[in-house]
C-alpha cells in the first residue's frame, strides 16, 4: 500500500461508516447519501470534492448533526474518537458542535449575526464551551483575532460584522470555528464566496492554524486547486456515494475511478494551451433516478455488464481506493472488456 503513508496506521479521529441520509418526501424517500464511508486521522486534512448535489455538504451537515429537516441519518454510524455521535440526544450533540467539531460555512457575509460585535460572538462561543470568565474570554478573543490576521485586533473586537470586508469576515468565521479548540473542523466551501485574490490567503490561514493546533479538517469544495494545495487525502463524491478516496497526489495525477479521472482531466492545465477541455458527457442523476449498480454507469466510458447490476464497494486500486469494478481482483476476467 504505497503513498497512503503512516496516517492509516493511526487511530482515526473521525470514522464515517456506511452513512445513509434519507429525505422522506411525498413521492417516496430520497437517498441523499448512500453508504458513505471514510476516516479522518488526527491532524489530517481530508478534501471532499464533487459536483453540486453529490452529497459533500450533506455529509458535513450529518457529521455536525445539523441536517435540514426532514433529512435524517437512516443508517450507518459516525464516531469521533471511538464514540458514536450520530445518535446523540440534541443536548449532547450541542456540546460536540463548536467544542469538538467546529464548522466554517460558505458565505461570510451571512454567517455572522449582524447585530452583535465580533467580540461578543467570540466571547459567547468560548464561554459556552470553556470554563473561563468574561475577561479571560475577551483576552482570548483579541488573541484569536490577531491569530487570524485582523489588524488592530484590540480595537476591531468591538466592531460589527458589517464593518469588515468579506475576506476579513471569513477570518472572523475561522476564529469562531476554532476558538473553542475543537479536534476537527468541517469547512464547507470556505473560499467559494470570496474574491479570487483573497481565496489563497484564507486557505493558507486555515491550513496554518489547523496545523499549529493539530486540528483535523474536512475541506468540502469543488475547487480542485484548493484541494491540491491543502489536502492530505481527497474523497471524490458522486451521486451520494464516495467514488474514490486516496492521497491527494494520487487522485490528481493518477485517478483510478473513471469519474475522478474525467473530473481531473477537465481541470485546465497551466503548462500549455488547449482549445477545448475534455468533458464528461451527461449529467449526474437526480436522487430519484439513480441507476441500478454503479451510479456512474450511464456516463462511464468503461462500462460493462456487471456495472449495471451490482454496486461496487471501495476496492483497492493501484494508488487509491475506488468504487469501480475495474479493480475487482477476484474477477480479473472482467477487465478484458475494457
Amino acid at each position: 500500500m504505497p503513498a497512503c503513508g503512516d496516517r492509516t496506521l493511526m487511530q482515526p479521529l473521525l470514522q464515517v461508516r456506511d452513512l445513509v441520509v434519507e429525505f422522506p418526501t411525498r413521492r417516496g424517500t430520497l437517498r441523499a447519501l448512500d453508504r458513505v464511508s471514510f476516516d479522518i486521522a488526527p491532524g489530517e486534512v481530508l478534501g471532499v470534492v464533487g459536483e453540486s448535489g453529490a452529497g459533500k455538504s450533506m455529509t458535513g451537515a450529518a457529521i455536525i448533526g445539523l441536517l435540514e429537516p426532514p433529512g435524517r441519518v437512516a443508517g450507518g454510524s459516525i464516531t469521533l474518537r471511538g464514540e458514536r455521535i450520530d445518535n446523540l440526544p440534541p443536548r449532547e450533540m450541542r456540546k460536540v458542535r463548536g467544542k469538538r467539531i467546529g464548522a466554517i460555512f460558505q458565505d461570510p457575509l451571512t454567517t455572522l449575526n449582524p447585530l452583535y460585535t465580533v467580540g461578543h460572538q467570540l466571547v459567547e462561543t468560548m464561554r459556552t464551551h470553556l470554563a473561563i470568565d468574561a475577561a479571560e474570554a475577551r483576552r482570548r478573543a483579541v488573541g484569536w483575532l490577531e491569530m487570524v490576521g485582523i489588524p488592530a485586533a484590540s480595537e476591531r473586537i468591538d466592531a460589527y460584522p458589517h464593518q469588515f470586508s468579506g475576506g476579513m469576515r471569513q477570518r472572523v468565521v475561522i476564529a469562531l470555528a476554532l476558538c473553542a479548540e475543537p479536534e476537527m473542523v468541517v469547512a464547507d466551501e470556505p473560499t467559494t464566496a470570496l474574491d479570487v485574490s483573497i481565496q489563497a490567503q484564507v486557505i493558507a490561514l486555515l491550513k496554518r492554524l489547523t496545523r499549529e493546533k493539530g486540528t483535523s479538517v474536512m475541506l468540502i469544495t469543488h475547487d480542485m486547486g484548493v484541494i491540491a494545495e491543502t489536502a492530505d487525502r481527497v474523497a471524490v463524491m458522486y451521486a451520494g456515494r464516495v467514488a474514490e478516496i486516496g492521497p491527494v497526489r494520487s487522485v490528481v495525477k493518477a485517478a483510478a475511478h473513471p469519474y475522478s479521472a474525467g473530473l481531473m482531466a477537465s481541470i485546465p492545465p497551466l503548462s500549455h494551451k488547449v482549445d477545448q477541455l475534455p468533458q464528461i458527457d451527461g449529467a449526474m442523476p437526480r436522487l430519484n433516478a439513480i441507476p441500478q449498480g454503479c451510479a456512474y454507469n450511464p456516463r462511464c466510458p468503461h462500462v460493462f455488464d456487471r456495472c449495471k447490476v451490482e454496486r461496487p464497494e471501495l476496492l483497492q486500486a493501484p494508488e487509491t481506493r475506488a468504487a469501480c469494478w475495474l479493480f475487482d481482483s477476484d474477477a480479473p476476467r472482467e477487465r478484458a472488456h475494457v
Partner: peptide
C-alpha cells in the same frame, strides 16, 4: 438564516439562539 445555522454549528445553547440571535 445562515447566522442562526452558524450559531447552532458553534454549539450555542438553544435559549441563546432562539432569543439572543
Amino acid at each position: 438564516s445562515d447566522y442562526v445555522k452558524f450559531a447552532r454549528a458553534r454549539g450555542l445553547r438553544d435559549r441563546s439562539i432562539n432569543f439572543g440571535h
